[in-house]
Design a protein around this nucleic acid. Structure first.
Length: 591
RNA sequence: GGCCCCGUGGUGUAGCUGGCCCAACACGCCACCCUGUCAAGGUGGAGAUCGGCGGUUCGAAUCCGCUCGGGGUCGCCA
């Protein structure tokens, strides 16, 4: 619109200026004579006044206006009469005395509150997402997301990265997450898949001599949705040649902290601490520890080495562990709460139970204290540094289970007791992840990151004998207890790659079919390389303090994987299916 | 596939230990009044059979079952 001024930009300095404004009616106050309209555009809100004595026609239009109508007005910026300034409004010193008003579009009554921060049911918000997006919160979130991505691209450009687009129609691979499949019309009986990540393409661009690859890449995974997971998500995808871990770390630290500053006006200090996986598990019971607060776990198996307490005895006899968490001022937690919500958390993560007792002036009391000997109590006090008023929580069982479940209890306690400081972003690198994990049911090993990850050079000897003990050169970025991304140094030696595939139980024929092109490429001088993929949605979510990824995605899906706005997924005509060679097994619609 | 929470006019909520509720309040909507408000105010009005189905009961928004939808979560997510 020619000559348009933005609402939020007006201030006392504009006094006397004639302006053209356009936007939505955020609010209307009609005094019969004088009419006020708060006009909103994405920059803010400004008050318009319509005076029947000086602008009769405009005033008549204004009094017809309703919430969310779109109008164009002309008028003169004026200081508000003394005493009628609004200190709650950035433009509250001024108003625009409108003499022309044109309705550009009317609006029906809104199905949800738009102008304010009132929160509607999420289903309604998604059904009318285009209205939800008008709300200040969504405007803020998506604009911050834009600045974040722009800053990542700019930083990448400065650091010598080249953005390369990779295909969104790729071969399906059965490993990893479930693929979204696309039928191939031209190749009956064949399918494409949407990429779970551009992993192999970015490695091949290393072979292709682009030694710093970057992409803001859309990825798809057909798995159940969560607060921090959608079918489709966006990642900052990077790959670098001739690097080792520290070079990857410093590039990510530079890019992310720069973008964080651009989008969230906070600069996370760098470098970020490095924490080996094994230590993260031992201290926090998690591979994505929230390090904004202490209260670390403490293994106390030694204390109970000769315990008579059956629960601990059994765990230790079976080669497991007893883990404890000291909760200062835990006296405020009641038995009911410990055996309710706290126990529930422990059970959800596999613990059989949650033992507890209190340290009082006289010694250990309550809970399991009666099963502990005096020596054990003394040793425990010493190990944990207990003082009167403390609560001690225990899990016992297989070491991993005991650690993970108590780690989750630690997080629950932190929220319950207010241990988590506001406004902090504690970034860290979790390093030396295991190369493989073993499925407890089938006993099979599978890659923890992906099968192209380099093993730790010291651990090659364990590959055949104890593969689950092999460390990898994979690393994660974690912030405030959220996994923001992961990466690794890759294998480029075809013989080493064959060795890994062999441990994973892939036949040579399988490898040739699925990854033949990669192995082939690595016979033509692949540079050593490694990279990273960081979840943009999650980073923006954490940066903005949102607790759901859907708050930073313009048009997300519901948890059940649908879009209430468009009604997708939809059925299509038989003919359309037949054309691409599909016949669906789903039952006919109930109609 | 499992577990947990939620579902009342357009929106947000109250009622939910059954009858006083053919449902209340706020915002929005409609009409009228009102020249300085900014959650404007005043008067009047329209609008929900309480997600759906079935059951218990003399009687259900309120109890039970199933189901649908939304959210959280375990599994799953190389």
């Amino acid at each position: 619109m020619k000559g348009r001024t933005m609402c939020g930009a007006l201030s006392a300095a504009d006094e006397g200026r004639r302006v053209i404004l356009a936007g939505w009616v955020n609010h209307r106050r009609d005094h019969g004579g004088l009419t006020f309209i708060d006009l909103r555009d994405h920059t803010g809100v400004v008050q318009l006044t319509f005076n029947p004595e000086t602008a009769e026609e405009a005033k008549r239009v204004a009094e017809r206006c309703r919430l969310e109508w779109v109008i164009r007005v002309e008028g003169v910026v004026a200081l508000r009469p003394e005493g009628s300034e609004n200190p709650n409004l950035p433009t509250g010193e001024v108003e625009v005395r409108a003499d022309r008003c044109e309705v550009l579009a009317q609006a029906q009554a809104m199905p949800l509150g738009v102008g304010d921060e009132a929160v509607a049911d999420e289903r309604v918000r998604l059904q009318y997402r285009y209205l939800d997006l008008r709300r200040p919160r969504m405007q803020r979130n998506l604009r911050a997301r834009h600045r974040f991505i722009k800053a990542l691209r700019d930083a990448g450009d400065r650091l010598g990265f080249v953005e390369i687009e990779t295909p969104t129609m790729v071969p399906s691979t059965p490993e990893g997450a479930r693929d979204f499949l696309i039928p191939s019309r031209l190749w009956p009986g064949h399918v494409w898949a949407l990429p779970q990540s551009p992993q192999l393409y970015k490695q091949l661009s290393m072979v292709g001599g682009f030694d710093r690859y970057l992409q803001i890449a859309r990825c798809w995974r057909d798995e159940d949705l969560r607060a921090d997971r959608q079918f489709e998500f966006t990642q900052l995808d990077l790959e670098m040649s001739f690097v080792e871990e520290e070079e990857v770390y410093s590039v990510l630290e530079e890019m992310v902290s720069t973008a964080w500053e651009a989008a969230f006006q906070v600069t996370p200090p760098t470098p970020w601490p490095r924490l080996p996986f094994a230590e993260a598990m031992r201290r926090y019971g998690s591979d994505k520890p929230d390090t904004r607060f202490g209260h670390e776990l403490c293994e106390v198996s030694q204390v109970f080495a000769s315990s008579e307490f059956q629960v601990f005895r059994r765990a230790l006899d079976q080669g497991g562990a007893v883990v404890a968490l000291r909760v200062p001022e835990g006296a405020q937690l009641t038995r009911g709460e410990l055996e309710g919500a706290f126990l529930e958390v422990a059970r959800t993560y596999g613990a059989q139970g949650l033992a507890y007792c209190w340290q009082r002036d006289a010694g250990l009391e309550g809970g399991i204290s009666k099963f502990l000997s005096e020596a054990e109590a003394d040793r425990l006090r010493q190990e944990l540094g207990l003082t009167a008023g403390d609560l001690v929580l225990f899990t016992a069982g297989p070491r991993q289970t005991a650690l993970v479940s108590l780690g989750q209890v630690r997080l629950h306690a932190a929220r319950r007791l207010g241990w988590i400081p506001e406004g902090r972003f504690d970034f860290l690198w979790v390093t030396e992840f295991p190369l493989f994990e073993r499925d407890p049911r089938t006993g099979e090993v599978s890659p923890m990151h992906h099968p192209f990850t380099q093993p730790h050079p010291d651990d090659w000897g364990l590959l055949r004998t104890e593969p689950e003990k092999v460390r990898s050169r994979a690393y994660d970025i974690v912030c405030n207890g959220v996994e923001l991304g992961s990466g690794s140094l890759r294998i480029t030696d075809p013989r080493q790659q064959a060795e890994i595939f062999s441990v994973l139980g892939f036949s040579e024929a399988e490898v040739a079919t699925k990854f033949g092109f990669l192995i082939e490429a690595f016979r033509y001088g692949p540079p050593p390389h490694g990279g990273f993929a960081a979840g943009i949605d999650r980073m923006v979510m954490v940066g903005l303090g949102e607790s759901s990824i859907r708050e930073v995605i313009a048009f997300p899906k519901t948890q059940t994987g649908a879009d209430p706005m468009t009604g997708a997924p939809t059925r299509v005509a038989e003919a359309q299916l037949a054309e691409v060679g599909l016949r669906l097994a789903a039952p006919p619609p109930p109609s």
